Amino acid sequence: MSGQRVDRRRFLRGATVGATVVSVAGAGAYAASATDEKRAAVPSANSRSTAATFRWFGTAGWRIDVGSRTLLVDPYLSRYDTGMYTGSFDPTTELTVDTGTVDRHVGKPETVLVTHSHWDHFNDVPYIARKTGARVIGTMTTYNLALASEVPSDRVGLVKGGEVLDFGAYTVEVIASLHSRNAAYSVALPGVRLTRPDKPRTVADLPEGDTLAYHVTVKNGPSVFFMGGSDFVERNVTGLSPDIAMIAMQASDSTHAYAERIITALGKPSVVVPVHWDNFEIGLTNPPKPDPDVKPHLDAFVATVRKISPRTKVVVPRYLTPYRFV
């Protein structure tokens, strides 16, 4: 498919969060949420809360620091050019890691949660795991791709959905979920890896491989829902009632009433943070540059949340900016 022109609306990219939100540094956000973020920057009355700091890596990526312990979700910092935003997406693009950028921002993670195995979620994970010794948690496809990428087998955890993992300072509930669908009602780069493949070398070697979501609860702190694709199994998330929801933005209207359904199913969280709406093939420069195909959906999502859940704070994040949700 090298050089083949691809309509981004047909190439689905998806991705992903009662508490008060406190922006710790550099609050300003994308214009759609500047007012909400300013309103949100108020002190918490919850004196029992454990401090947890959240930094957005772009796409669906997050760094969460709970005291001295660090957890990552879908950390993709290399952000190289595949031609996606110039209309010539090339799935034979070689996988590369911007080690300098990754090293500057990931800290010393002990756990890496992977929602699915597309390159904009998994690309940097093997490097991070090998260098830091972090444990990787993900699907069978993520498991086999990690092994193929020389991550030691005792540092890879296979999950399917339904597991509740106890890490002491936080717990992780694994939720069986769905990847986004494009305007053709299809999933980009589909496929699974049920056995260990050859070492992945190109973007095409990293298929979706089933999709998970994660519900992370900080001990004596907030509960946070993380998505990596803009679709979900409504029955699987109903009743979770997270304080904060990192919600992936859709790039098409193929999923029925997406915003209404996800916000309602999650119990109208106190804070909603839309993610995976940025152009992830350029650097981490603020303010983030929206993906032009996703921006209308982002605007509509924010408007819908404000309409159906007026008490919910909507915070459209900036790259690498520390936020506290307490």
Score class of each variant (00 low, 15 high):
148 A>S: 03
150 E>C: 11
150 E>K: 15
152 P>Y: 14
153 S>W: 02
154 D>N: 09
154 D>A: 08
155 R>V: 05
157 G>C: 09
157 G>I: 09
159 V>T: 10
162 G>V: 09
163 E>G: 03
164 V>W: 00
165 L>H: 08
165 L>C: 09
166 D>M: 02
166 D>I: 01
168 G>K: 01
168 G>I: 01
173 E>L: 03
176 A>I: 03
177 S>L: 11
177 S>I: 09
179 H>N: 13
181 R>F: 13
182 N>T: 09
183 A>L: 04
183 A>V: 04
183 A>H: 04
183 A>K: 13
185 Y>P: 00
185 Y>A: 09
185 Y>E: 01
187 V>W: 02
188 A>H: 02
188 A>L: 07
188 A>S: 14
188 A>E: 04
189 L>I: 04
192 V>I: 14
192 V>F: 10
192 V>H: 12
193 R>F: 03
195 T>N: 10
196 R>P: 00
198 D>M: 10
199 K>D: 03
199 K>E: 09
199 K>V: 02
199 K>P: 01
200 P>H: 13
201 R>Q: 11
202 T>N: 08
203 V>Y: 11
203 V>E: 05
203 V>K: 15
204 A>E: 11
204 A>C: 01
204 A>T: 01
204 A>K: 15
205 D>A: 06
206 L>N: 03
208 E>C: 13
209 G>S: 14
211 T>Q: 13
211 T>Y: 01
211 T>G: 03
213 A>K: 07
214 Y>N: 06
215 H>N: 11
215 H>E: 08
215 H>V: 02
216 V>I: 13
217 T>M: 00
219 K>S: 04
220 N>R: 15
221 G>A: 10
221 G>Q: 06
222 P>N: 14
222 P>L: 06
222 P>T: 14
223 S>F: 04
223 S>H: 11
225 F>E: 02
225 F>A: 07
